[in-house]
Amino acid sequence: MTIATILNQKGRDVFKTDPATTLVEVVKMLRDKGVGAILVAEGEKLCGILSERDIVRALSNHGGSALLRPASEFMTKDVMTCTEDETIVSVMSRMTTGRFRHMPVVKGRKIAGLVSIGDVVKFRIEETEREAEDMRAYIAAG
């Protein structure tokens, strides 16, 4: 199964903001959208990602004044991305090794979606359960 399978089922909506958006505005977006990360972009050009972890780190290092500063100061700039045709297993491995929970999906130079480790694990479990059921059916038919 590929990342396209996840995006086709969960949707391709991506929540993003521009680099000048203040951290407090990003916090409100995370709350209102019920997500754990926001992409930071200029148009379709991905500049970074701002996750809950980045915000906690910003508050820990700079206190409440961080909330009035731009997202660009605290976002992760070196963002690892994937494409729709990558396998779920491959992306899960990269996310686990890199210890991050959100990965933007790109198509060419455009943002095509965003997957979380929860999305990837859920689909991997479903795939494993289907394979086990197929094996049980094969053995029972034999």
Rank of each mutant, 00 (worst) to 15 (best):
A4Y: 00
I6S: 05
L7C: 11
N8W: 00
K10M: 09
K10D: 06
V14C: 14
V14L: 11
F15V: 14
F15D: 02
K16G: 04
T17H: 04
T17W: 05
T17F: 04
T17D: 00
D18V: 11
P19H: 12
P19L: 08
P19C: 09
T22K: 15
L23D: 04
V24Q: 12
V24N: 09
V27Q: 06
V27A: 11
L30I: 07
R31I: 10
D32K: 15
D32T: 05
K33E: 13
V35W: 05
V35K: 08
G36Y: 08
G36I: 09
A37C: 14
A37H: 08
L39S: 09
L39H: 08
V40S: 07
A41C: 13
G43L: 05
G43K: 15
G43C: 08
K45I: 14
K45F: 07
K45E: 13
L46F: 04
L46D: 02
G48Q: 12
G48I: 11
I49P: 02
L50K: 10
L50S: 04
S51N: 10
E52L: 04
R53I: 03
V56A: 14
R57V: 06
L59A: 08
S60P: 07
S60V: 09
N61Y: 10
G64I: 12
S65G: 04
S65A: 14
A66R: 12
L67M: 15
L68T: 10
L68P: 00
R69E: 15
P70R: 13
A71H: 08
A71F: 06
S72L: 05
E73F: 10
E73T: 01
E73Q: 10
F74A: 03
M75E: 01
T76S: 13
K77P: 01
K77V: 00
D78P: 00
D78W: 01
V79H: 05
V79E: 03
M80T: 08
T81F: 05
T83F: 01
E86I: 03
I88Y: 01
S90A: 11
S90I: 00
V91T: 01
V91I: 09
S93G: 05
T96S: 10
T96V: 03
T96I: 02
T97L: 06
T97C: 00
G98H: 01
R99A: 02
F100S: 02
R101W: 03
M103D: 00
P104E: 00
V105S: 04
K107I: 06
R109E: 10
I111K: 06
L114N: 03
S116G: 08
S116I: 02
I117C: 07
G118Y: 08
G118E: 08
D119T: 10
V121K: 03
F123K: 03
R124E: 12
R124C: 07
E126W: 11
E126K: 14
E127S: 15
E129H: 06
R130T: 14
R130K: 15
E131R: 14
A132Q: 14
E133F: 15
E133G: 12
D134P: 02
A137C: 09
Y138K: 12
Y138H: 12
I139V: 15
G142L: 12
